[in-house]
Amino acid sequence: QVALSRTQVCGILREELFQGDAFHQSDTHIFIIMGASGDLAKKKIYPTIWWLFRDGLLPENTFIVGYARSRLTVADIRKQSEPFFKATPEEKLKLEDFFARNSYVAGQYDDAASYQRLNSHMNALHLGSQANRLFYLALPPTVYEAVTKNIHESCMSQIGWNRIIVEKPFGRDLQSSDRLSNHISSLFREDQIYRIDHYLGKEMVQNLMVLRFANRIFGPIWNRDNIACVILTFKEPFGTEGRGGYFDEFGIIRDVMQNHLLQMLCLVAMEKPASTNSDDVRDEKVKVLKCISEVQANNVVLGQYVGNPDGEGEATKGYLDDPTVPRGSTTATFAAVVLYVENERWDGVPFILRCGKALNERKAEVRLQFHDVAGDIFHQQCKRNELVIRVQPNEAVYTKMMTKKPGMFFNPEESELDLTYGNRYKNVKLPDAYERLILDVFCGSQMHFVRSDELREAWRIFTPLLHQIELEKPKPIPYIYGSRGPTEADELMKRVGFQYEGTYKWVNPHKL
Results as ranks from 00 to 15, higher is better:
253 I>T: 10
253 I>R: 01
254 R>Y: 02
254 R>W: 01
254 R>G: 02
255 D>G: 00
255 D>Y: 03
255 D>T: 01
256 V>F: 07
256 V>W: 01
256 V>L: 10
259 N>W: 02
259 N>E: 03
262 L>Y: 04
262 L>D: 01
263 Q>I: 03
264 M>R: 04
264 M>E: 00
265 L>F: 11
265 L>Q: 00
266 C>W: 00
268 V>S: 07
268 V>M: 10
270 M>K: 03
271 E>T: 05
271 E>K: 07
272 K>M: 09
272 K>I: 07
275 S>K: 04
275 S>G: 07
276 T>S: 10
276 T>W: 02
277 N>W: 10
277 N>G: 13
277 N>T: 12
278 S>V: 08
278 S>C: 09
280 D>Y: 10
281 V>A: 08
281 V>P: 04
281 V>K: 04
282 R>D: 01
282 R>H: 08
283 D>G: 10
283 D>Q: 03
284 E>W: 04
286 V>E: 09
287 K>T: 07
288 V>Y: 03
289 L>F: 07
292 I>R: 01
293 S>L: 07
293 S>A: 12
294 E>F: 11
294 E>T: 11
295 V>T: 13
296 Q>K: 15
296 Q>C: 13
297 A>I: 13
299 N>I: 04
299 N>H: 13
299 N>C: 11
299 N>G: 10
300 V>N: 08
300 V>T: 14
301 V>K: 10
301 V>C: 10
302 L>I: 09
305 Y>L: 02
305 Y>S: 03
306 V>Y: 14
306 V>R: 15
307 G>N: 11
308 N>W: 07
308 N>H: 13
309 P>Y: 11
309 P>M: 12
310 D>T: 12
314 E>H: 11
315 A>G: 15
315 A>Y: 13
316 T>W: 09
319 Y>K: 00
320 L>A: 12
320 L>M: 11
321 D>H: 07
322 D>H: 05
322 D>Y: 04
322 D>S: 05
322 D>M: 06
323 P>E: 15
323 P>G: 11
324 T>L: 10
325 V>R: 02
327 R>D: 14
327 R>L: 13
328 G>I: 09
329 S>M: 00
330 T>Q: 13
331 T>V: 07
331 T>M: 08
331 T>K: 04
331 T>Y: 00
332 A>V: 05
333 T>S: 09
333 T>H: 01
334 F>I: 00
334 F>T: 04
335 A>R: 04
335 A>P: 02
336 A>E: 15
336 A>T: 15
336 A>R: 01
336 A>Q: 15
340 Y>F: 13
340 Y>A: 09
340 Y>T: 13
340 Y>G: 08
341 V>F: 07
342 E>C: 13
343 N>K: 05
345 R>K: 10
345 R>Q: 10
346 W>G: 01
346 W>D: 01
349 V>G: 04
352 I>Q: 00
352 I>V: 13
353 L>M: 09
353 L>Q: 03
354 R>N: 01
355 C>K: 03
355 C>P: 03
355 C>L: 05
355 C>S: 08
357 K>L: 02
358 A>N: 02
359 L>C: 12
359 L>K: 00
361 E>S: 07
362 R>N: 06
362 R>G: 09
364 A>G: 11
365 E>C: 06
366 V>D: 04
367 R>G: 02
367 R>K: 01
368 L>T: 03
369 Q>A: 06
370 F>A: 00
370 F>V: 05
371 H>L: 09
372 D>I: 02
372 D>G: 11
372 D>Q: 10
374 A>D: 15
374 A>Q: 13
376 D>R: 06
376 D>A: 10
377 I>L: 14
377 I>H: 07
377 I>Y: 11
378 F>L: 10
381 Q>M: 09
381 Q>S: 12
381 Q>Y: 07
383 K>R: 11
383 K>L: 13
383 K>V: 15
383 K>I: 13
385 N>A: 02
385 N>R: 02
385 N>P: 04
387 L>M: 05
388 V>N: 07
388 V>R: 05
388 V>T: 08
388 V>H: 01
389 I>C: 12
389 I>W: 01
389 I>R: 02
390 R>T: 07
391 V>Q: 04
392 Q>P: 01
392 Q>C: 06
393 P>S: 09
393 P>H: 07
393 P>A: 08
394 N>P: 04
396 A>W: 02
396 A>N: 05
396 A>Q: 00
396 A>C: 11
398 Y>C: 00
400 K>N: 03
400 K>S: 00
401 M>E: 01
401 M>C: 11
403 T>G: 09
403 T>C: 13
405 K>D: 06
405 K>N: 13
406 P>A: 10
406 P>N: 06
407 G>K: 04
407 G>A: 08
408 M>Q: 08
410 F>R: 09
410 F>M: 13
411 N>V: 10
412 P>M: 09
412 P>Q: 11
414 E>Q: 14
414 E>I: 13
415 S>M: 08
415 S>C: 14
416 E>N: 04
416 E>L: 00
416 E>V: 03
416 E>K: 02
418 D>A: 07
418 D>F: 02
419 L>W: 04
419 L>G: 06
420 T>I: 07
422 G>H: 10
422 G>S: 14
426 K>V: 10
426 K>R: 11
427 N>V: 06
428 V>N: 12
429 K>C: 12
429 K>S: 14
430 L>Q: 08
430 L>T: 15
432 D>Q: 10
432 D>K: 09
437 L>M: 06
438 I>C: 07
440 D>S: 05
440 D>E: 08
440 D>Y: 04
441 V>P: 07
442 F>K: 07
442 F>C: 11
443 C>R: 10
444 G>N: 08
446 Q>W: 02
447 M>I: 11
447 M>G: 03
447 M>S: 03
448 H>M: 07
451 R>S: 01
452 S>A: 12
457 E>M: 11
457 E>G: 08
457 E>D: 08
458 A>S: 10
459 W>N: 00
460 R>N: 11
463 T>R: 00
463 T>W: 02
464 P>Y: 07
464 P>D: 10
466 L>K: 04
467 H>F: 11
469 I>M: 13
470 E>Y: 08
470 E>R: 08
471 L>N: 15
471 L>E: 15
473 K>P: 11
474 P>K: 13
474 P>D: 13
476 P>E: 04
477 I>S: 13
477 I>F: 12
478 P>S: 13
479 Y>T: 02
480 I>N: 11
480 I>F: 14
485 G>C: 05
485 G>P: 00
487 T>E: 15
487 T>K: 13
488 E>M: 12
488 E>P: 10
488 E>Q: 13
488 E>R: 09
489 A>H: 07
493 M>D: 06
494 K>V: 11
495 R>Q: 11
495 R>W: 09
496 V>K: 11
497 G>V: 02
498 F>G: 07
498 F>K: 08
499 Q>W: 12
499 Q>Y: 12
500 Y>E: 01
501 E>F: 10
501 E>W: 10
503 T>L: 14
503 T>G: 11
504 Y>E: 04
504 Y>H: 06
505 K>G: 12
506 W>K: 05
506 W>A: 04
506 W>M: 05
506 W>V: 03
